[in-house]
């Protein structure tokens, strides 16, 4: 599934490492991290005290999520392929993963906000 998602946007890389060791791991890891971040925002901080529940806080968390999604993809691909520096394919891959992180975080926000006390209407 993840291989198809990434290759749809950035095409195939001749190095099979991407298909065998990078795409699925990064896609899954990104999904989990986004779920954890959304759960932290809505279910932990959003139920604890009214200190981190506004839209500005949500945007800040989203930015954190996107930075993580981007850098996770770059570092994972660099480690797996052994390349000393990121190439254009890796940046493309990181961009798609950023998009993936955005979708998951927004989706998880819509899902988890109902369980929050202070952030029930953030940001929607």
């Amino acid at each position: 599934m993840f291989t198809a998602l990434y290759e749809l946007f950035i095409g195939k890389n001749p190095d099979p490492t991407y298909r065998n060791a990078v795409f699925t791991s990064v896609g899954t890891l990104t999904l989990l991290i986004m779920l954890v971040l959304a759960a932290l925002f809505y279910l932990l901080l959003g139920r604890w005290r009214a200190v981190f529940h506004r839209t500005s806080h949500w945007i800040l968390t989203l930015v954190i999520a996107l930075i993580i999604g981007f850098s996770l993809a770059i570092s994972y691909a660099k480690d797996a392929t052994g390349e000393p520096s990121a190439d254009s394919y890796m940046y493309g891959f990181a961009g798609v993963n950023l998009l993936w992180a955005l979708i998951v975080f927004v989706g998880a926000s819509a899902l988890f906000r109902r369980g929050s006390v202070y952030a029930r209407h953030t940001p929607f």
Binding site: A21, V22, S25, L29, I64, I67, I68, S71, L72, I74, S75, Y76, A77, D79, A80
Partner: peptide
């Protein structure tokens, strides 16, 4: 977190 990701060996070695 970003620095940690870029510095860590994340891919299974």
């Amino acid at each position: 977190a970003a620095w940690w990701f870029s510095g860590c060996n994340l891919a299974p070695q």
